[in-house]
Write a protein that binds this DNA or RNA. Sequence first.
DNA 1: CAAAATACGTAACATACGATACAGCGCTCC
DNA 2: GGAGCGCTGTATCGTATGTTACGTATTTTG
Lengths: 279, 279
Amino acid sequence: MGEKMISSIAELIADRIGSMPAGERRAAQTLIASYPMIGLKTVAEFSAAAGVSSPTILRFVARLGFQNYPEFQSNLQDELAAQLQSPAIRTLNPPSPGGGTASPMLEATLDNMRETFRHLSDRQLADIAARLAERRGKTFLIGGRFTDPLARYMAAHLAIVQPDVVHLAGQESMWRDRLIDMGKRDVLVIFDIRRYQDSLVRFAEKAHQRGVQIVLFTDQWLSPIARFARHVIAGRTAVPSAWDSSAALFVVAETLIGAVTRQLDANGARRIREMEGLR
Amino acid sequence: MGEKMISSIAELIADRIGSMPAGERRAAQTLIASYPMIGLKTVAEFSAAAGVSSPTILRFVARLGFQNYPEFQSNLQDELAAQLQSPAIRTLNPPSPGGGTASPMLEATLDNMRETFRHLSDRQLADIAARLAERRGKTFLIGGRFTDPLARYMAAHLAIVQPDVVHLAGQESMWRDRLIDMGKRDVLVIFDIRRYQDSLVRFAEKAHQRGVQIVLFTDQWLSPIARFARHVIAGRTAVPSAWDSSAALFVVAETLIGAVTRQLDANGARRIREMEGLR
DNA sequence: CAAAATACGTAACATACGATACAGCGCTCC
DNA sequence: GGAGCGCTGTATCGTATGTTACGTATTTTG
């Protein structure tokens, strides 16, 4: 068939957004971002939200094929009404004619997360959070080639709610020397998924020998570092892509960040406020 | 407490419909019958549907406690928005077959991802992937305080499948000077969620002026950088935590990485194998 | 049953909303 | 580097929309 099935205005926009001038594209993006609410408001409000002028909004709806703004709004309303009638089938992004959500990548990722958390007890999470929250020693974080950003992400947050959080960055020679600062009161958070990096394994081993408590984020096949780790978080990484996915580990990291923050709330809240003041 | 809990206009109507005159009651019943759609239309249409006159409709909304008709409509819209935003009551997400996960954090994150992708068309993703894959110029990536790790993560992967991928790290003064290398053949991927960082906005503006194509990862309230962006990805960030979640954006990033890799497969595969050999 | 009070619709009004004409600007293509 | 085109915002206009005043109908009450 020559034409595509366009059943919603959102699809219509997605179809034509490529061939729109900058201003109208901003209008389109603004509408999609909070679809479809902004489209139900007046042209003035719409234009203000998108940061463009009123005529641009009107040209935008005209390009979509509507004679005037009210007609555009009517269609949006009809669409909404249809959705409300059948709460079951939310068809903004249609279930992809053929079954399954349009993005198998998304589905796989969601599954990974559910699986990851299924094998992860609340108890375990709480224990790790408690360990990270008790301020006896320092917290070091490090990751592998692709997972180091996760270590950074976690460090960026933890460093705000407590002192002595350090992300080990840069060359191997750089952080290897930091071992000398690490002792049995300290915690080392390591991210390592396959291909497990030798340098990280060696580093973990050394740290372990010094009595450092290791929290390991790895994949379901477990990095060799698991041998030395006090806590192991095994996330699912398989997705229909050339790469492995770190998304499940990312979510676990965020969950931990949240839990630690909550535990430190009494002291941490003041600390956060203090920091705000320093800007 | 003396007052009842009134959380929706529908309840408000049910509460007062007993003390309404005949005409206004017809208005109320008409609204309830197709709640809330007819209330979003004009007074004239509403009155026609209810078989009463316009002033009766206005007296009806006045009795509900609204100053004027637009105010009444705004409240209806807010109510709708709240309903649409929270797929919370989405009974279709099985409570994890085999034991309900008690983690509200996980549930919220999963919802965020579904919502994010609902507002993200395959087309848009494909467009962005194509832009990133076509090797006309360089690809720059940068992020804000908490999102910079996402930029790193993406850069780490893209740099493997294609040349000229650079992550802008370090001090503002460092990457500000890199502007001089950037031109209209280049792409700049920016991560910026609220509190949006002034430095990033300024940087984006300058880059935009130089004709750089900007791909923006932001939250649903859209960073001001959206003004300059060619492509905007609006991810949901709300979770029951002291922090916002970047997990949805992370998944989008991974999806894009996968898409770009697939597109470059012909050439990219050889490049990857070559790299393997270099170890 | 009469008289008053309330409810309702018709019609005129004012506002704010969408639409349009036009000029300035940047971009592309010679 | 210059000419042409397309995009965007400002200012203006017409009109649809919400609002109000007033007269008529309907119900309520003494």
